[in-house]
Structure formats: C-alpha cells, structure tokens
Amino acid sequence: MDNVVSTKQEIKMKSVDLQVFYQDFQALHGIDMDIKANHVTALIGPSGCGKSTFLRTLNRLNELIEGTTIKGQVYLDDQAIYSKEMDVVGLRKRVGMVFQKPSVFPMSVYENVAYGPRIHGIKNRGQLDEIVEKSLRAANLWEEMGGRLHTPAARMSGGQQQRLVIARVLAVDPEVILMDEPASALDPISTSKLEELIAELKRAYTIVIVTHNMQQAARVSDYTGFFLNGQLIEFNRTKELFVNPANQQTEDYITGRFG
C-alpha cells in the first residue's frame, strides 16, 4: 500500500445533502463533504453540533439508535452506501471505527484482535497469527504486548486498550477508519502516542477523526470541518481553516470565544 502517491487527491468518501433525523429532531442539515483518501479529516465543533452524528453516518452505525431516519446520500468509492443493495456488514468491514471509550472485549489480547478476521471467516491459525502480529505492530503495540498475547485485554492500561482497539480495527483490513474522540479518555503521553500512530496510519488508510481538542485537530489533520447546530459551517485545509477562517463563527470557535 505504499504506492498511493498517485491517488493522493482521490476522494474516498463523499456525503451529498446528508440529513439525519432522530424522531422529529433534525440533527444534520444537508451536509456536503468530500473525504480525501490517505488524509486525515478532522471534525470539530461544540458538543451536540452533529459532528459525531455525521461520523456515524459514514458506517451506518447511527441506525442502531431507534427512530433514526436519513435523507441524502453517502458514497464510498462512488458506491451509494444508503441503498438497498448495500451490504451493511460488508460496509463496516471497509469502514472501521474507534470509539471514545476504549472498549476491549472480555477476552485475551490475541482474541480481541483475531475477533474481526474470525467473524469474516478466517479460521487458519497461522494466518490469524500473522494478522494479529501485523495489526499489533501497525498499532505500535507489538513491542509492549507481543509477549503477553494471551493475557486478558482488560488488564492493559487505558492507552494500551485504545491502541488495541485500533489494532482490532486494522485486523479486518479496512479502507477508512473513523475515530470518535479517541483520545478523550487518555493521559497526555498516551495521547501523543496515539497522534503519532494516526500520522503513520494515514499512509495506508483514510482517517476521519472527531475531536474536542482544537490543538489536536491542528496537529493531526490535513482537512478540518467545523460543525455548528447540525450544519457544516466551514470545510477547508486544516492550515487554511485555523490560520485564516473564512467564517466569523469558525473564527469565534477556534479562538475560544464560545464552545
């Protein structure tokens, strides 16, 4: 996956006039966004602005909330994901997700990582071993945990658990990784390790990250979208958006005047 240079500017995912309703409440108003392959796209904005809702439309996970309806469309490589033909299980294999709170399954480190490949039908032990090692290495966890694969994952530190969750996502070989405030439960050292990891991962994956922390968005992302009240106020290259915001509300938010 190193010869991606030529496809750098390719659009991996794209939302078109996307609207989300929870019962009668409209959580997102017509969002149009292009997510570029092999880049990190950050979504920022105050709580309740719709950034997490948007993230969850990208792998159709918001459908778990009863009473959700969706208008508009999201494309993954030109394929409409909100269509009858879309295989939701297959979609989630291609679009992985890391949650706010690291939630390891009550199993060993090895079984956590092997969970995804197993459900997708890989039974061969050698092949599984290989995937587990590769995923743990890619998540910068092999050094620490390689010798303790069969200890319960719950015994790891919070930072290690979050990287294990990432390894678990990598193990199903996704194309896009969604991260919902992945550092919010971590200490500063674990956070910086995580940010390094994100920088490494974007070489092979497309990453969308929701964050509360504007410095983090500025540090890790290439593109940033600012959400407010369910609308995408501004979307631009990160450098541009932080240095020279086009919109007054964006400027107010990033300079800390509200939020």
Partner: peptide, 11 residues
C-alpha cells in the same frame, strides 16, 4: 459498548 464495537467491525 460491546455491541457497537462488534457491529462496527462488520460482525
């Protein structure tokens, strides 16, 4: 949480 995580892995 387990449910979300597992479904998000494509289970």
């Amino acid at each position: 949480e387990y449910r979300e995580n597992s479904l998000a892995l494509g289970a």
